[in-house]
């Protein structure tokens, strides 16, 4: 990484995004972003990202210049109504889509510069996906589902199997490794999905509405599981969600409206608000 060049720029961006401005506790942000390590500490950097879709001859501006950064090990929620550009931003962070303008860096790699193979490699090794609809392979057992990303990563079978069993134990499904998705509840399926997302030791876990198809209690368990993994493994977790339960565990929340990030909220600021809500 080139030490001097981009750093002041990045710091400039920091202020411009108003990353922490909504919260009073700006300076006490974790990580103490002093100087030289700044670049390395950001696992995701989106700078001035714009995306335009053409729908029925009409141009839809899904993202209108979004600046968004996520620190390594952070737990960030992207919140916003449907149509706010949430999914579009999310897909770009996941290397599934490329911006029309602006840059998206994942672990300091510009995704626009990657070809199909490199993008597949990035998705395989750097990113773990969790979907609203679980998206397990229906014909495969829990074990095979967790082993699949390791198969794509050319991990030897014996090693992959050991790791898959270990991961399934970690998410509390040690007894069900040979169950097929249809034999499991929604919460259990999502646990398998969490284990699968962690298979290749990703730097980022992207969860798209992970609680959207779950009841409140099960959703809460999944959120807690994600939080626990975020703490114990140091994995960065980014979720797109409508679920207010997610707020209490997130380090930071980005509110997206009409293709722009309206504001960032730190958790400290949020706890107070939640307290007030409870008191009411």
């Amino acid at each position: 990484m080139n030490a001097e060049g981009p750093i002041p720029n990045a710091e400039g961006q920091e202020n411009k995004t108003g990353e922490l401005s909504a919260a009073p506790g700006v300076s006490s942000a974790p990580g103490g972003e002093a100087g030289a390590d700044l670049l390395a500490t950001h696992i995701v950097r989106a700078i001035g990202v714009r995306k335009v879709f053409t729908m029925g001859g009409e141009k839809v501006h899904a993202l209108k210049g979004v600046d968004f950064k996520v620190k390594r090990g952070e737990y960030v929620a992207i919140m916003g109504p449907s149509g706010s550009g949430k999914s579009t931003l999310f897909n770009m962070i996941g290397g599934l889509d490329k911006p029309n303008a602006g840059k998206v860096f994942i672990d300091e790699v510009d995704i626009a510069a990657l070809n199909t193979f490199e993008l597949a490699w990035l998705r395989c090794h750097k990113i773990g996906y969790i979907f609203q609809t679980f998206n397990l392979i229906p014909v495969a057992t829990a074990l095979d589902n967790v082993m699949l990303p390791m198969l794509f990563a050319d991990v030897p079978q014996a090693e992959a199997q050991d790791k898959a069993v270990e991961l399934l134990r970690k998410v509390g499904l040690g007894e069900r490794i040979f169950h097929k998705p249809v034999q499991m509840s929604g919460g259990q399926q999502q646990r398998v999905a969490v284990a699968r997302a962690l298979a290749n030791d990703p730097a980022i876990v992207l969860a798209d509405e992970p609680t959207g198809n779950l009841d409140s209690a099960t959703g809460h368990q999944i959120i807690e599981l994600l939080r626990e993994i975020n703490r114990s493994e140091g994995v960065t977790v980014i979720t797109a969600t409508h679920d207010y339960k997610m707020l209490s565990v997130s380090d930071r929340i980005a509110w997206l409206t009409d293709g722009v990030i309206e504001r960032f909220v730190e958790r400290e600021a949020l706890d107070i608000r939640e307290g007030q809500t409870d008191a009411r």
Binding site: A120, R123, C124, F131, P149, F152
Partner: peptide, 10 residues
């Protein structure tokens, strides 16, 4: 799509 998200090649 899921397989491709998980890094499966064409």
């Amino acid at each position: 799509g899921t397989m491709k998200c998980l890094g499966g090649l064409d």
